[in-house]
Design a protein around this nucleic acid. Structure first.
Length: 422
RNA sequence: GGUGAGGUGGAUGAGCGGCUGAAAUCAGCAGUUUGCUAAACUGCCGUACGGGUUAAACUGUACCGAGGGUUCGAAUCCCUCCCUCACCGCCA
C-alpha cells in the first residue's frame, strides 16, 4: 500500500510512474486525494463534537457530586443534542475511511527509476547471462522422461492421491530434493540469514499483510472451515513475523530464510508449459527475506541478486538475469530481477527465482517500522527472493547433466546427496 | 472437544463507571554528582489521525485482545468472537 503522503506530495509524479507500470486508472490518484480531504474535514468535525461531549460529561460528573441534579439533567440533554449531530458525522467518517482504504489498496507500488518501460515479457531487459548451454548427447530426453527412467518422480501417483500438479518424489528423487533444500539453507545461513520454520497456513491478516489479499484471493488454497490460507510462498509467514512490530534501527537489516512447500492454485495454462515439473500446485522453495533501512534497500537488492547468482553458478547451470519491465512486474514490487535457467532438453528458459525490492509498500501496510536517529517513525523496506524454487532447478539439473552413464550431480550437492551420479 | 482463569504501555503489574492515556517497578534515553569494569540522584520515556508553529511549544480525538451494546460518561458493566494459561478428554 502506498503512503498517502507520497500521493499528496507529488500526484503528478505518481501518475507518471504508475503509467510505466502500465496502470491505466490514473484518476484514482485524484479520487484518493479528494477523498482524503473529505476524510480530514469529517475527522475534524468529529473530534470537535466529541470534545464537547467529553467536556460536558465531565461537568455532569462534578454536578452530580455536588448534588445539583437539575443542572446535571440540563447538561444531559445538551449532550443528547451533541450526540445527534455526531452520529451522521461519525457514519460519514467511517464510510470515507473505508472507501479511502478500499481505493488505496487498488494502487500498485510505484516502479523505481531503473524499471524499463514495456508491457510484455519481451520487453524485459537481460542484465547478464552466465554459464554455458550444454550440448546434449543424442539420446537426451526431457526431465519428465528422466524422472520415469530413473524412478525419481511419479506424476501419475500424485494424480491419484491428490490431483495434477502434486507429484510424488521417490527414492533418489526424494533424496535429491532433500539435498537441494539442505544445501540452499546452509548457503543462506552462511550468508547471515536466520533460518525459520514457519507455519504453512496463515490467517487472513497475514495474507492481507503481504498483499496476497485482496488481490489474489483465487490463487491461494483456502481452508474455509478455519479461514486459513495455504501459503503460496514462505515470504508470507516470514515477512509477517514482523507485522505490527517497531524494531530498533540498530536491528536492521533483518535477514531471514526458510524452506517451505508452496501451494498455488494457479488457474492457468495447459500443454507444454505445465508438463512435468514446469508448473505445479505444490512445490518446494527456499526463500530469503530482508527488512532493511530505506537508505540501503537498493544496495541490498543488488547483494541479494549476487547471492542468488552465485548459488546458480555453484550448481553449474546456465542462467540469465532479467530486469522486469513495468508491465511484467508484480503489483507490490518496485524493482524485480528474475532468474531463468536453461532447460537444455526443452530448449527453453525457466524462471527459478524472482528477487524484488518492495520499498515501503508491504511494510507500510504491515506497520513494520523503526525510529530513526531524529526520533521519527519510518517504515522499513522489505525485499525478498527465492533461493531457489526446486522443481525447475531439478528439471534443469536432470536434463543438462544427462549422458550415456546417467546424470552427474554438481560437486556442491554430492556431499548432501551421498554420491556423484544418479 | 469440556470446565475454569485470564488478555492493560518494551517487560513485570495496579486499576471504586467520572480525578486514569492509564499507579508502581524494571529495562531504555538524557543529565548531575562521586569517580572509574559501577553506584546514587533528577528529568524524559506508547501509537495513529487532526489543529497549531518557519520549526518547536501547545492542543483535540481515538486506541487498555477484536467487534457490538448499556450509560450524560467505560480499561472498569453486558453480549459475541479470537487468543493465552490450568485441569480433563482425545492424539502424533
Amino acid at each position: 500500500m502506498l503512503q498517502l503522503a507520497v500521493l499528496r506530495n507529488n500526484p503528478q509524479e505518481v501518475k507518471e510512474r504508475l503509467t510505466i507500470k502500465n496502470f491505466k486508472d490514473l484518476t484514482l490518484v485524484d479520487d484518493i486525494i479528494a477523498l482524503d480531504d473529505e476524510r480530514k474535514k469529517l475527522n475534524f468535525r468529529f473530534d470537535e463534537t466529541k470534545a464537547k461531549i467529553n467536556a460536558t460529561s465531565k461537568e455532569i460528573g462534578g454536578l452530580m457530586a455536588k448534588g445539583k441534579k437539575e443542572e446535571a439533567e440540563a447538561k444531559k440533554s445538551e449532550v443528547e443534542g451533541f450526540k445527534n449531530t455526531l452520529s451522521p458525522i461519525s457514519d460519514a467518517l467511517e464510510k470515507a475511511e473505508k472507501e479511502l482504504n478500499g481505493l488505496l489498496v487498488l494502487l500498485p507500488n510505484l516502479p523505481s527509476s531503473k524499471v524499463p518501460k514495456g508491457k510484455t515479457p519481451e520487453d524485459n531487459e537481460v542484465v547478464r547471462t552466465g554459464g554455458n548451454k550444454p550440448g546434449l548427447y543424442a539420446g537426451a530426453v526431457p526431465h519428465w522422461e528422466l524422472a520415469k527412467k530413473f524412478d525419481l518422480i511419479d506424476f501419475e501417483l500424485g494424480n491419484k492421491i491428490t490431483g495434477s500438479g502434486f507429484p510424488v518424489y521417490k527414492g533418489k528423487g526424494a533424496k535429491l530434493q532433500r539435498a537441494l533444500i539442505q544445501y540452499f539453507l546452509d548457503y543462506n545461513t552462511a550468508a547471515g540469514y536466520t533460518e525459520y520454520q514457519p507455519p504453512l497456513m496463515v490467517n487472513e491478516a497475514s495474507a492481507y499483510g503481504t498483499g496476497q489479499l485482496p488481490d489474489k484471493e483465487g490463487q491461494m488454497y483456502h481452508a474455509t472451515e478455519d479461514n486459513f490460507y495455504l501459503i503460496p510462498t514462505a515470504e508470507v509467514p516470514l515477512t509477517n513475523i514482523y507485522r505490527d512490530v517497531i524494531v530498533k534501527e540498530a536491528e536492521l537489516p533483518i535477514k531471514m530464510t526458510a524452506y517451505t512447500p508452496c501451494f498455488r492454485r494457479e488457474a492457468g495454462s495447459y500443454g507444454k508449459d505445465v508438463r512435468g515439473l514446469n508448473r505445479l500446485h505444490q512445490f518446494d522453495k527456499v526463500e530469503v527475506v530482508q527488512l532493511v533501512h530505506p537508505a540501503n534497500s537498493y544496495v541490498v537488492l543488488e547483494e541479494m541478486v549476487e547471492h542468488v547468482e552465485k548459488l546458480l553458478q555453484s550448481l553449474g547451470l546456465p542462467y540469465r538475469i532479467l530486469r522486469l519491465c513495468g508491465g511484467d512486474m508484480s503489483f507490490t514490487s518496485a524493482l524485480t530481477y528474475d532468474f531463468e535457467v536453461w532447460s537444455a532438453a526443452q530448449e527453453r528458459w525457466l524462471e527459478v527465482s524472482s528477487v524484488s525490492n518492495f520499498e515501503a509498500f508491504q511494510t507500510n501496510r504491515m506497520k513494520i517500522r523503526f525510529k530513526d536517529e531524529g526520533g521519527k517513525m519510518q517504515a522499513a523496506h522489505s525485499l525478498n527472493g527465492s533461493s531457489l524454487a526446486l522443481p525447475r532447478i531439478l528439471a534443469c539439473l536432470l536434463e543438462n547433466n544427462q549422458d550415456e552413464n546417467g546424470i552427474k550431480l554438481p560437486v556442491v550437492l554430492q556431499g548432501y546427496f551421498g554420491s556423484e551420479m544418479i
